[in-house]
Amino acid sequence: MSAQDAADRARALGKLRLGDVVFRSVTRIAAIMVLALLGGVIVALVIGAMPALQAFGFSFLTTQSWNPVTEQFGALAPIYGTLVTSLIAMVIAVPFGLLIALFLTELCPKWLRRPIGVAVELLAGIPSIIYGIWGLFVLAPFLQVHVQPALISAFGSVPVLSSLFAGPPYGIGVLTAGLILAIMVLPFITSISRDVFEAVPPVLKEAAYGLGCSTWEVMRHVVLPYTRVGVIGGVMLGLGRALGETMAVTFVIGNAHRITASLLAPGTTISASIANEFTEAIGEVYTASLIALGLILFVITLIVLAAARYMLLRIERRIG
C-alpha cells in the first residue's frame, strides 16, 4: 500500500467519523428539544400570565367574579366547571369502559374481537370538534326535550337532588358537557383496560376457573386486583383528556362564569373560557388572566398525566 492510499483511507475514515459525531449530536439535540418544549410551554405561560398574577395574586384562584368591564378576574368558576364536567364524565365512562373491556377480553367471540376493537379505536380518533357539533345539534336538543324535564320533575321533591336538577331545561349546560366528555374518553379507557386485562397471565384465570369461579368472580377477584394499577393509570389518562378537552365542551357548556349547584345550568370550563374569549379579550389584564387560566389547566393536567404514566409504567414493569 502506497502512502497515497493510506492518506486517502485516513481521510475517508475521518469523514465517516465526523459524520457519526454530527449525526449523534443532531439526534441528541432533537431529544433535548422535546424536554425544552415542555419547559418552554411552562415559561411562556408564566410570563404571559404575569400581569394577572401580579394584579390578583393568590386570590385569583379563590375569586368567582369574572368581569371584563371592571377588570376583576377570578378562576374559581372555570376551575369548578372543569372539575365537575370531568367528574361527570368519569362517573359514566369508567364503568362503561370496564364493562366493554370485560366483554372484549372474556365474552366476545374471537372473530368479533378485532372489528369491535378497531371500532373503539376509530371512535378515539374522531376529532373533538365533531363531538362538539354533534352535541350542540343532536344531544342538547334531545336532552332539553326528553331527559331534562323528566329529571326536574322526578327529583324536584327529593332534598339534595332537587338542587342538582333545578332550573329550566336549557339543553346546553354542565350535564350535557359531562355527557359529551364521557363519550369522548370512553374509547381511551376501554382500549387501555382491554390491553391490561389481556396481559393477565392465563394461568391465573384458568386456576380460578378450575376452582369453579364464575366469569364475573374471575373478573372481580383475579383480573381486577391483578391489573388495578394499570386500570387506575388508564382512568387517569382519560381524566387528563377530559380536563383539557376544549372543542367538545365549548359547544355545549353555555359559557357562563358562575357556580351553581344545578347541573342543568350553563357553566364554563377553563378551556372553554379561553376558546370563547381569547380573541375578543381587550386589555393586558384580561388576556393575562386567560393565559393564567391556561397555566392552571396545564399544571393540573401535568400532575394527573404524570401520575397516570407512572402507574402504567409500574404495571408494564411487573408484566414485562
Binding site: 422535546v34 424536554l35 418544549l37 415542555l38 418552554g40 410551554v41 411562556a44 405561560l45 410570563i47 404571559g48 389518562l237 387528563g240 383528556r241 380536563l243 383539557g244 378537552e245 376544549t246 378551556s271 379561553i274 376558546a275 381569547f278 386567560l290 393565559i291 391556561g294 389547566l297 396545564f298 393536567t301 401535568l302 398525566l305 404524570a306 404514566r309 409504567l313
Partner: peptide, 21 residues
Amino acid sequence: FINDILLSAPSIVVGLFIYEV
C-alpha cells in the same frame, strides 16, 4: 416520560404557547 405527557397535554395550551412566542 415527558413525551408521553406532551402526547396527551391539552391542545389549547399549545395554542397559548405559540401565541406567546
